[in-house]
């Protein structure tokens, strides 16, 4: 009797914890998983297609789906400085260090975040630039601050102006009730590294499922060679650049010699 009761409790608990059998599945496909930077790279655009696979077609009638796609670039450290007027001159007065924050951040959704879910959910699911974690070094602590923090606001504004951070509340387009697409702009000055692409499927303000994939942005061929040489073979690289200058000057004086 006791054992049977225990079994019943376990089954109920398992049913409660496991996703319901009728849950939707999210299938996401990116136009590429590798962005190659070569000599004529000026930026590119990734296209993301998504499909919501329904176990039970009737479910659709009850739910309106929302999709949020967040792309987080490689983590870098940044110093944000604030200028102040000292003796009539604008100089860098205060500074804050942002530690291991995404150097690229793009959030797009099918409608404004505030309409999709409540603030608490947005914060927990890191939806929107405000709710993505941008850790700062404050004294000995490393922590994120409130979205209204002036340094955070300043940092985000500069990153947005450079095209590194973006929010597009109408960036996700539903092609049908279960198919959507969005584009992710990768600017020419985008940092190299791994870009994590997270797609959230939301219904009635609650998370249904999520799917993550990644894109690699890498320098290719000559560009990769130069960058690697500048980093690993510093002396040889410097000497080679100096030699290049000598030869260019020599060549010019031979070509343009008039006497």
């Amino acid at each position: 009797m006791i054992r049977r009761g225990l079994l019943f409790v376990i089954i109920v608990a398992a049913l409660a914890l496991a996703p319901p059998a009728t849950a939707e599945r999210l299938i996401v496909s990116l136009s590429t998983h590798r962005v190659l930077i070569n000599s004529n790279f000026t930026g590119t655009e990734l296209v993301l297609f998504g499909a919501i696979e329904l176990a039970d077609p009737d479910i659709l009638d009850r739910r309106g789906y929302d999709v949020v796609v967040t792309v987080r670039g490689p983590q870098r450290n940044f110093i944000t400085r604030r200028k102040a007027q000292v003796l009539g001159i604008w100089i860098n007065a205060e500074s804050r260090e942002f530690v291991e924050v995404p150097a690229y951040l793009a959030v797009s959704s099918n409608r404004p975040f505030a309409e999709i879910a409540e603030t608490e959910f947005l914060r927990r699911s890191r939806i929107g630039i405000d709710y993505n974690i941008l850790t700062q070094r404050i004294g000995t602590d490393i922590a994120d601050v409130v979205p209204q923090d002036p340094f955070r606001v300043g940092f985000v504004r500069v990153m947005r102006a450079e095209g590194m951070f973006s929010e597009t509340p109408n960036g996700v387009t539903f092609l049908s009730s279960t198919h959507f697409r969005t584009t992710v702009p990768i600017p020419g000055s985008a940092p190299t590294g791994t870009y994590e692409v997270e797609t959230l499927l939301i219904a009635n303000g609650a998370l249904v499922t999520r799917e993550t994939t990644a894109v690699e942005v890498v320098k290719q061929g000559f560009e990769a060679l130069v960058a690697q040489a500048a980093r690993d073979q510093r002396l040889a690289y410097g000497l080679l650049t100096a030699l290049l200058a000598l030869l260019t000057g020599l060549f010019a004086s031979l070509v343009f010699r008039r006497d």
């Binding site: 870098r76 450290n77 940044f78 110093i79 944000t80 400085r81 604030r82 200028k83 102040a84 007027q85 009539g88 001159i89 604008w90 860098n92 260090e97 150097a103 340094f151 300043g154 940092f155 504004r157 500069v158 990153m159 102006a161 940092p191 500048a230 980093r231």
Partner: peptide, 19 residues
Amino acid sequence: DLITRPADPFSVVATETFQ
């Protein structure tokens, strides 16, 4: 440039861009 108010008082620089 030094004495005019900058368009944005904040500036951002990556500390290890050339890692």
